[in-house]
Nucleic acid binder design. Structure first.
Lengths: 179, 179
DNA sequence: CCTCAAGTGGACACGATGTCCGCTTGAGGT
DNA sequence: ACCTCAAGCGGACATCGTGTCCACTTGAGG
């Protein structure tokens, strides 16, 4: 059965309000009640759909991640198939830095506990990198290692220290080149 | 002026109780009140010394970290000075995996927010790795990148997936060898 | 033994979480 | 157009953890 009209309307209001609040104050400082109030719905309505902040952040990230995933699977090289692994990895890193620069606060919002690793998106990134690293002794573990520098906490810390996205991308390209 | 006798006694009780609770239940599930009760002191006494869980975890980690730091500065090669950078990095990785295997729950306890990067210990590790990486274009940023795979959340996630410490160490050695 | 500052501990106020249940509303059937 | 009823709604509530505050206790030097 399809979603009821009022339910759909409320979901849109919730996501819009959450996006705004996350951007304005950072995900950690926004309470469920803030979101409910800003969206003009009750707490019960909010909890019905999203059990916690992480679920909302995941929903918001969904479309951006999907777009990048699409590019990785079917886009032009070097992001998409066709280029040598090291170049594809470098391109992936650059795209992820771009994503982090625009949405790190959201990614951070998904990180209640260690939930980042259980996200579908993380699984996708790992599968991708594991394939690129298939020439190494233990690609499965190396994939996690190669993804670690993209942790949003680290990214925000580096940015706060005054490191530019360009320098981060360059260092990651360096790393990819070693592969 | 020296610490009063009762104060010293209570600090020891607090650290012992916290260590036990962290090990038994994981740092995240232990409340300040749990610790106070287990230590047989009041909440006020606990807060007087340690403003939050992170401070307690840091205090508990202190001695282990100091020992490794000492080895890095003055120990025998390849951990200490004298060996080629790539080998020293590999040895450092191995030592850190060992530390994580024994105390990851504590390290995780220090991670209230993104506080890990502002710890004195993290600064030490970064300085160490930056020096080892001084042959590269941007050692300052690469140091953060090379330390990222040691994030305790990642380590615990890998272990939970059934990955052995040996495989993790091996992959990190691989990474160090590329340097 | 006396003094007083350091130390103690529990009561308190606050804020966030997640649940529960009576009310409202949309949509399909007649 | 109306009826019905389940899906959806929303706010009150109970619970829990945090951090502060202050009256009381205790240890150590004079």
């Amino acid at each position: 059965m399809p979603e009821r009209a009022d339910a759909a309307r409320n979901r849109a209001k919730i996501l819009a309000a959450a996006d705004e609040l996350f951007t304005a104050h950072g995900a950690a400082d926004v309470t469920m009640e803030d979101i409910a109030r800003a969206a003009g719905v009750g707490r019960g309505t909010l909890y019905r759909r999203y059990p916690d902040r992480a679920a909302i952040a995941v929903a918001l990230l969904d479309e951006h991640e999907r777009r990048l995933q699409e590019s990785l699977l079917r886009g032009d090289p070097p992001l998409g198939p066709g280029a040598p692994p090291a170049e594809r990895l470098a391109a992936f890193y650059a795209a992820m830095v771009d994503l982090l620069e625009r949405h790190a606060h959201l990614v951070l919002g998904t990180e209640v506990g260690h939930s980042r690793f259980t996200t579908g998106a993380y699984g996708f990134w790992r599968t991708h990198v594991r394939i690129l690293a298939s020439g190494t002794p233990d690609p499965d573990v190396l994939a996690d290692v190669l993804l670690a520098p993209l942790a949003p906490e680290l990214y925000l810390h580096q940015r706060a220290r005054g490191v530019t996205p360009e320098r981060i991308t360059a260092s990651l390209r360096e790393l990819a080149g070693l592969l």
